[in-house]
């Protein structure tokens, strides 16, 4: 089999990355820093990683930035997302009382490349009140927009996902 060494190395890297994420989860949920706790956490994350690395990280997913996103931009993105969620919540609250909504289905495409980033974009659009992603097909999004201001797909994409897409491109490229 060709590239057997490279495959074996890639398998090891996948196991290590999975164990890394699992042990972060262990530390956060156990909340204790005794030696026994840390050693047991590392042991069990390695065991679970050896069993499940193939489901976490696909063999073809070999671009580095998709596996190790830049976390500082992730923090900025979470704060920005919370801001957007609260702003649009107040808009939806006004719409509930004044009943002036103009719902519409808009279609647009995203420029994000990796699958994780696209799923994150669709999830963020659904999380923001007033927009729900109905379908994500490769780079094509179908979005139900409660308070639509335009039917032009380019302007709709800018209004719905412009800022989010800019930050997500920095996180996952």
């Amino acid at each position: 089999m060709r590239f057997a060494g490279a495959r074996r190395r890639w398998k090891l890297v996948r196991i290590v990355i999975t164990a890394f994420y699992l042990s972060i989860g262990w530390v956060l949920f156990s909340g204790s820093f005794t030696v026994f706790s840390i050693v047991a956490g590392l042991f069990f994350s390695l065991t679970v990683a050896v069993l499940t690395y193939d489901a976490f990280i696909d063999e073809s997913e070999s671009s580095r930035r998709a596996l190790l996103p830049s976390l500082h931009w992730g923090g900025v993105y979470v704060v920005y997302l919370l801001f957007r969620v609260y702003v649009s919540s107040f808009r939806v609250m006004v719409l509930v009382f004044r009943r002036t909504m103009d719902p519409r289905i808009v279609h647009f495409r995203t420029r994000l490349r990796s699958d994780v980033a696209r799923v994150a974009l669709a999830t963020s659009i659904t999380l923001t009140p007033g927009t729900i992603t109905l379908e994500l097909d490769d780079d094509h999004l179908i979005v139900h927009w409660l308070d639509s201001r335009t039917g032009h797909s380019k302007h709709a994409a800018r209004a719905i996902s412009g800022g989010m897409e800019r930050y997500l491109r920095r996180i996952w490229v």
Binding site: V85, S89, R99, M101, P103, T126, L127, I132, H144, L146
Partner: peptide, 19 residues
């Protein structure tokens, strides 16, 4: 309760749930 169809009601319930 007051929105007209399934999509708009879904928007209201999603607002309620997330925020």
């Amino acid at each position: 309760l007051i929105f007209p169809d399934v999509y708009t009601r879904l928007q209201a319930s999603a607002t309620c749930a997330t925020t």
